[in-house]
Nucleic acid binder design. Structure first.
Length: 330
DNA sequence: CATGCGTGGTC
DNA sequence: TGACCAAGCAT
């Protein structure tokens, strides 16, 4: 029996992760699942710890402002998750629904997360299909489909146990993360070594089929380091939707795919679907009224995405050396 | 259904 | 250094 063998393995090898508490905490499960979307466990752990320290329960984060949530989320990426998290907390305020169907309609909760919360937090019989599960079952059944998600979902439903559904969901993902890894899978340590079709075919790593990706374009911009005599920097808030929605930034020229030959790239950063190269430009007066002065000491009060932290760091460093050489000269 | 949406680690 | 990857969702 698939589920029995998997659960036996899980009991022996599961990790102690901060959201895996003895008594199931739906708030912890929800928060961790949102954070773990497209994000590694190692990256999530410190963020999760800070969130539950600041907001121990759902009702606590429900009282927080979006800006407060974005400040704690800064650096984690995919900022729409933070906006949806905040909205979801406000909608619920008190408690989570327990069915996959009711969870599914909440902001930021899609098919995977709904099934994951229903099973992990409430032990409902729900099939949670994520990247791990697609990889594990694509290999186990040697699925040659280019888009195996639907097929994997059908197969997974038939594998679900009647007891310990939550553990089963976590176990399958844990197997994918620790043993049935994308690269260099540890097949010798896998409980399904003898029944895995991909292993029998001796090409485990070729599953699931990966489609070639288009090369990412590079966009170019000039970022303005607008620094006042007292060291304060001019920042503004980005529009609430889209790329880095609701986060703070230094003013920049439009990000376009045309390189200005004369300018020298100071900061490079890669986003989901393009590279960015930024040139720095120094000013002492803001271009308009859209923004505010922020002292470096107060940066932590504002939600700055990693790309802007890089630009500001490079900008202030450069500014300092310019100032110092000026000071030396006089 | 394809595209937009971050970041840090790894090889 | 750069390409690829990691517990998806919204539109």
């Amino acid at each position: 029996m698939f589920s029995e063998k998997l659960l036996k393995w899980y009991d022996l090898f599961k990790r102690n992760l901060p959201w895996r508490t003895e008594r199931k905490n739906p708030y912890f499960v929800w928060l961790s699942e949102i954070m773990l979307q497209q994000t590694t466990v190692a990256t999530v752990i410190p963020y999760f710890g800070r969130f539950i320290l600041k907001w121990p329960e759902l009702k606590d984060i429900a009282k927080a402002s979006l800006d407060e949530v974005l400040v704690e989320w800064q650096g984690l990426g995919y900022y729409s998750r933070a906006r949806n998290l905040h909205q979801c907390a406000q909608l619920l305020a008190n408690a989570f629904p327990q069915s996959e169907e009711e969870l599914r309609i909440l902001p930021g909760i899609g098919p995977y997360t709904a099934a994951a919360i229903a099973s992990i937090a409430f032990d409902k019989k729900a099939a949670a299909v994520d990247g791990n599960v697609i990889r594990v079952l694509s290999r186990y059944y040697a699925l040659q489909l280019p888009m195996p998600r639907k097929e994997v979902h059908q197969r997974l439903k038939k594998l679900l146990p009647n007891k310990r559904c939550g553990d089963f969901t976590e176990a399958l993902m844990e197997l994918g993360a620790l043993v049935c890894r994308p690269k260099i899978p540890l097949c010798e340590e896998c409980p399904f070594l003898e029944t895995c079709k991909a292993y029998k075919l001796k090409n485990v790593e070729s599953f699931p089929l990966k489609h070639l990706k288009e090369k990412m374009p590079t966009r170019y911009t000039t970022a303005f380091i607008i620094c006042r005599q007292d060291g304060a920097l001019w920042l503004r808030k980005r529009p609430s939707k889209g790329l880095l929605g609701g986060m703070m930034e230094v003013p920049t020229t439009p990000w376009i795919e045309v390189k200005n030959a004369k300018q020298k790239t100071c900061v490079k950063h890669t986003f989901t679907h393009f590279h960015l190269e930024a040139t720095l430009c120094y000013r002492d007066k803001p271009p308009d009224r859209d923004g505010l002065w922020v002292h470096p000491h107060d940066f932590k009060k504002y939600a700055l995405p990693t790309v802007m932290k890089k630009i500001i760091k490079a900008g202030l460093k450069e500014f300092e050396s310019v100032q110092n050489s000026f000071d030396d000269a006089v």
